[in-house]
Design a protein around this nucleic acid. Sequence first.
DNA 1: CGAATATTTCGATAATCGTAGAAATATCGT
DNA 2: ACGATATTTCTACGATTATCGAAATATTCG
Lengths: 119, 119
Amino acid sequence: MHVDANRIIDALGSLAQEHRLAIFRLLVQAGPEGMAAGAIAEALGVPNSSLSFHLAHLHRAGLIGQQRQSRSLIYTADYESMNALIGFLTENCCAGSGCAPTAQTEPDTLSTRKQRKTA
Amino acid sequence: MHVDANRIIDALGSLAQEHRLAIFRLLVQAGPEGMAAGAIAEALGVPNSSLSFHLAHLHRAGLIGQQRQSRSLIYTADYESMNALIGFLTENCCAGSGCAPTAQTEPDTLSTRKQRKTA
DNA sequence: CGAATATTTCGATAATCGTAGAAATATCGT
DNA sequence: ACGATATTTCTACGATTATCGAAATATTCG
């Protein structure tokens, strides 16, 4: 175990919640510029105090960064942490058998790969 | 709320626990042959009733499979579910910016993933 | 059938989590 | 300094989670 399992558990637990997962996905979409807490609250329809709780949770887990910009606190997704999480899952939970998502395997057998909706 | 978000949250929540993460890693190591519940309990030093709780949790989330073999219940890691989980994280939580763990050899998927509004 | 083995379910308990209004803190503009 | 804006912290409370001994359920063997 070269990687801290507790860190991984914290990261997994942080994402294992409806609002927090939505927050993180929103911040990923927002890109490096991030989003202010208020903008996130409005976008997700979550009360400020509840959102702050979840932002603190994600921040404690190292999944998002925080930086003040005048009156607003701008949050940004921490891609490195997510990278480490995915790396851990890929290494520790896929070894041995056929579970290599990032490889050039045929997407035929993969269910979540091609979820694009051709509306 | 996306349709498959709940499934992802269940999977994340299942792995976001010390014993359950250890169980899953153990089953990944065990390979397709899997392990009996008792063997898992002994390997991890967890009481039977506690372990059963966690096994049921993982099974409910679809992360592990169950199959009886005489008196023992053999559990196996479900690689496809883990694959789907990693795929979701890679697609939804790494798109847009530099978060490509092992390679960025998927320009098709990642480049057009800028804006997805509905699902 | 009855004893032995393997695992789950039940039950109770302590701990943690999610929620959201209210109060507090921080920053800006005037 | 004062008022307005942005966000967090405080507080309380219901819901969920983790734990594990004891009892119950399945399965095999003699």
